[in-house]
Design a binder for these strands. Structure first.
Lengths: 205, 205
DNA sequence: ACCCGTTCCTAACGTCGTTAGATTTCCTAA
DNA sequence: TTAGGAAATCTAACGACGTTAGGAACGGGT
């Protein structure tokens, strides 16, 4: 049965082409330019063809979001190779903000409420897992026992997102935002370390 | 000339009605329902009338964003009356997240990249100023000399925004987000205090 | 050689933001 | 008191959007 497999391959191929074209438009021209008709034109098809591969526009956007998280994950894994646990944490912070600066429109869509909350949580999970691993190894290295590990992770995640957002919401440039993220992380880690008495028992608060 | 002033008053009146109607739609049904035609219907006019008061939809949305910041500012001023400087800081954090939880759609639009960055910075300035005052009095109360005051403010602002965003981006509910914000602030403040030696000279980093 | 399922396109629907032009309303001034 | 004109408002329309319906074209299996 060669024909059916070839057909399936072609189908998957054009699907990938659509994703690639959509990603290109998103990254270079922003979310406002991301239009079904525009994408169809770019892959040299008519608009309805897109609906053979995606239920609707949101489903296509979700695919881009998933792609973005995979990309971010790969960059994180790279930054996670730094041996020093403290530099590893600040390095991740810097990397996160750098990603937001290098892919502003993608980053924006990755955190846009239009994509379903459950779906976003699902695709973001691997990235958060990396963060958890890093925090685990950091606290182990410093004999810090966090009072609430999940809480610390959520604070970390929120802080990174907030400071990365500064770079396109506010007046701070990406370089400064990266520095801010590093400093914020240093301060948070210092605070957590200070909360823990020298004997390594959990902090009170 | 009574007639002209009355006309002006009527004009301003319908303008306010439009803003009020738009705000109501936004808060109760979200940004997707915020339509020129919908607003016009609600104030019992035809759609083009809206354009006599606002250049375009973005200008109207900007007005809502400004309103949101004024609202937030008034709530901040209330929370800023707490005498204890530490509780004042954590109280502001809690209040910020609470606002995001009570006005999710408004909060979302207040931080949406579709509104011009300069405009957003302009309307957000008074709120940030309150934050600066609070941080100033806090550091004074604890003899903490921050190495970079503006940096600390930006970290604060970013952290609050990030954690508030968790409540509708991620899996954490608003109550938990408020708690997270308080804890994050406590940790940050602890970190900054720890950076400062006992003699009150600025920290090294 | 026919047939049928897949693939694809044109045309259309309803909605959006926005504009043009006509129509109505209402003050002013002769 | 009425003619004129500015202001206010409406209807109709334009182009673009996401999306769907219906038919044409293609291509492998009988």
């Amino acid at each position: 049965m060669p024909t059916s497999t070839r057909r399936a391959r072609e189908r998957a191929n054009t699907r990938d082409q659509i994703i690639e074209a959509a990603l290109h438009v998103l990254e270079t021209e922003g979310i406002a330019a991301l239009t079904i008709r525009r994408i169809a034109t770019d892959v040299e098809y008519s608009a309805p063809v897109v609906y053979q591969h995606f239920a609707n526009k949101d489903a296509l956007v979700l695919e881009l979001v998933a792609h973005g998280h995979r990309l971010m994950l790969s960059e994180f894994r790279q930054a996670a190779q730094e041996p020093d646990t403290d530099r590893r944490m600040t390095g991740i912070a810097s990397q996160y903000v750098r990603f937001a600066g290098e892919h502003p429109h993608l980053f924006q869509v990755m955190n846009d409420p239009v994509v379903d909350a459950d779906e976003r949580r699902r695709v973001a999970e691997p990235v958060i897992d990396v963060l958890k691993e890093l925090l685990t190894s950091w606290s182990a290295a410093h004999d810090v026992v966090l009072a609430d590990f999940d809480q610390a992770c959520e604070i970390l995640w929120g802080t990174l997102y907030g400071i990365a957002s500064l770079s396109y919401l506010g007046s701070v440039g990406n370089d400064r935002a990266r520095y801010l993220a590093e400093q914020a992380l240093r301060t948070l880690l210092l605070g957590w370390r200070t909360e823990t008495p020298a004997n390594g028992r959990p902090a009170s608060s």
